[in-house]
Design a binder for these strands. Sequence first.
DNA 1: ACTTTTTGATAAAACCTTTTAGCTCCTGTA
DNA 2: TACAGGAGCTAAAAGGTTTTATCAAAAAGT
Lengths: 331, 331
Amino acid sequence: MNDSDHGRRTIRDVAKAAGVSISTASNALNGTGRTNAATREKVKRIADELGFRPNALARGLLMKRSHAIGMLTNDTYGRLTLPMAAGVSEILVDHGVSLFLCATNNDPRLAKLHLDALLDRQVDGIIFTATRIDLEPPPELLKLRVPVIYAFAQGPADSVSFHPDDAQGARVAVQHLQSLGRARIVHITGEENYLAARIRAHAYEELVGPSGQVMFGEWSEEWGHSAIDDIYSQSGPKPDAIFCGSDEIARGVIDALRDRGISIPDDVAVVGFDNWEVVSKQTRPPLTTIDMQLKEIGHRAGLAILGLSRQEKLEPGIVRLPCSIFKRNSA
Amino acid sequence: MNDSDHGRRTIRDVAKAAGVSISTASNALNGTGRTNAATREKVKRIADELGFRPNALARGLLMKRSHAIGMLTNDTYGRLTLPMAAGVSEILVDHGVSLFLCATNNDPRLAKLHLDALLDRQVDGIIFTATRIDLEPPPELLKLRVPVIYAFAQGPADSVSFHPDDAQGARVAVQHLQSLGRARIVHITGEENYLAARIRAHAYEELVGPSGQVMFGEWSEEWGHSAIDDIYSQSGPKPDAIFCGSDEIARGVIDALRDRGISIPDDVAVVGFDNWEVVSKQTRPPLTTIDMQLKEIGHRAGLAILGLSRQEKLEPGIVRLPCSIFKRNSA
DNA sequence: ACTTTTTGATAAAACCTTTTAGCTCCTGTA
DNA sequence: TACAGGAGCTAAAAGGTTTTATCAAAAAGT
């Protein structure tokens, strides 16, 4: 009586049009139960003609799987989050799973609000991401019935986390410089209270030995600049290569070196960290830098949460995904 | 028989515990129907004790409103999208509405996939955003039952769009320079085939009159640099101010000016466009620039889609939201 | 020819909530 | 006394799907 409603077609429309029961229609479409091949094809064809698409709410309500997952992030600025989110989404979309994005702005009240909303929506899992790998998640996250994956963030002991392999990334950078014949490599990086900074510095020290020099500071271009000023205002041997803790720092370093008429990479080679194109493409010369493969972290986190949501067991622990070096002209 | 299931509490658990019917429980919790004040309080208290939260899927299925909206973006990199998404989310979360994020990567197949998924989930509306205001949306978007809002993107004639007010932004920039007593203002901007570039250039020309000079090029730091080289390698009067079409261009401009020993802002004042902090904070001197208030665009888009999803009527057309000037030291 | 198995299809229950219509009881009015 | 009206509550339907149990008919086996 209402075939011409402007609403969506339901499975009962399909069933009626195909002259079968709702259950048969459902079975035919999902390949469940026992269905005659001919009927199955017919139902599928008619569903197609009618443009039938199942209501995800009804399906989720019944199956207790919403085919949606939530992503909780404290990063409003998006430099880290969006590439990861894109990676997660790329994986999920192929499995018919959608992604809720929740920006918490570092506000616990907001985090709670978002978390409750996600649970109300029966999400199949939650991915927690942060702007630094050693940020603690909100405590509510720890005692959920819903699986949680930590990406670029610290999880509790029995959880699954995905981090960039900072140590390996640092080694790749240093080894590249060494392969260029550089022997006096200095490491200029960000704040020491960041775990990532410490890991990278440690890996660096292991490779360069006692001749190494680590300069902690801020994650800013300005610090890169003033670090160079420090080095060159003091006496003693000068570096022939600099490994920077971020592209921004590297940019400051390069600018300061150029101000002093030092040629890059001939006199001093420079390697950055992040491969943040807006910075690394624009330095002069363009920056050779370490790429943390954020999208790949997203991929893996997406696959992991998909697995957990299907009750698969995952080895708990931190999975460190390899960084790659992106060579431009500064080293 | 299964009160101790580890699943979530349902409204029937609440009803049973309170010794009332399901309908009464629902009425009490939602303030609908006629309920005795005492019963109402009791039900609410018990629901609270039990930690009851209604299942959004069931509710959405019945009410035909999922309390979720989708955001479709072609911007993987996130420079524009994430601030807007954060703005949208800020508004929505207070109304109990969640946000699906869909990154299409400019791939029509992916866009279709995401769009279908959103519709299957019965979203109450869709916000379409793009990386430039004159990008056409996927054609499927035009004939939906679901309300659509365009943010930083071009919608069809009868739709509602929110754009930054590029003309006003340009005027603010130029007027600021004029108020500083500058008379020879040059405009160095990006590609002419971008609508935003043309709008800004036009507003600039109206204010400076025939003495003006617009230089279209690329949206890159390099172009800013070479534009300055062009200007100073030619004879004729030199500018005392430069209005740049983006912060990146401004950065190139500032670097090139400094290379020539020109003092900023004393000899030449520079204003940028975007207030992209990673760039504008790091120029030397820090950049005075135009802020497009992306978060505010998100706010307005969120409010608009909320209104449309409640059947409210909205005046179709492009709403241009004012830009603001962020003063640092370059002008 | 009779029983057993297999095949194909279906009615009905379930998921959890909101809403409609109706029921009972009480108070006040004619 | 009878009855209207309201207050307070509830049974049941509805929303769209999947799944379980059941049933009839056809095929296979004895």
